[in-house]
Amino acid sequence: MTRKFAALAILLLATACVPSIVATPPQEPIQVGFYSVTPQVEWNRPMMTASEIWTVDGYALQSLRFLDVADGQTLSGREDPDDKAPVFRRTMLPNEIQEFIVETLAAGGWANVKPKGLKPAKFGGLPGFRFAFGMLSDDGLEYDGVVLGTVREDTLHIIMYMGTRLHYYPKYAKDVEKLFKSIRT
């Protein structure tokens, strides 16, 4: 019994010692899956979740998401037993991947998701694609976003930056462009 309590206490202390969110140090490479990025500013990076979603001012205002999606999975990395949700297929062309992302956003409650400017782009040294998009939130707030992605070993890797069209998206848009260029694989 005493041993159990001791183990529990250690667990609790260990958890308490790890901050749930850390600030990314600017100008220092951070490993995100198989690649690294070098942020220009400090981002808040949650450490206790499986997904990498960063923000500076708050998730509702702007976010930077690093997503890895295996063949047959939804954007959130899950299977789709009902066959109703958009899923990623390894044979998809960039147009289809764009459609998959747009559909996922729309299914998630975003309205009027309009992609623009799909074009080839480098993801580190890998061939990839990028596009921008605009959309409306549930309560009619305008958002902008940009996606950079690549498919490597049948897995889709994307970095998606989005934020409110007024102020919070443009606030770090240039820093995100530099972060895109900093990708090292």
Partner: peptide, 10 residues
């Protein structure tokens, strides 16, 4: 078309 550059690459 918004995806003109991509289609040209195809």
């Amino acid at each position: 078309a918004e995806d003109r550059a991509m289609i040209k690459s195809y």
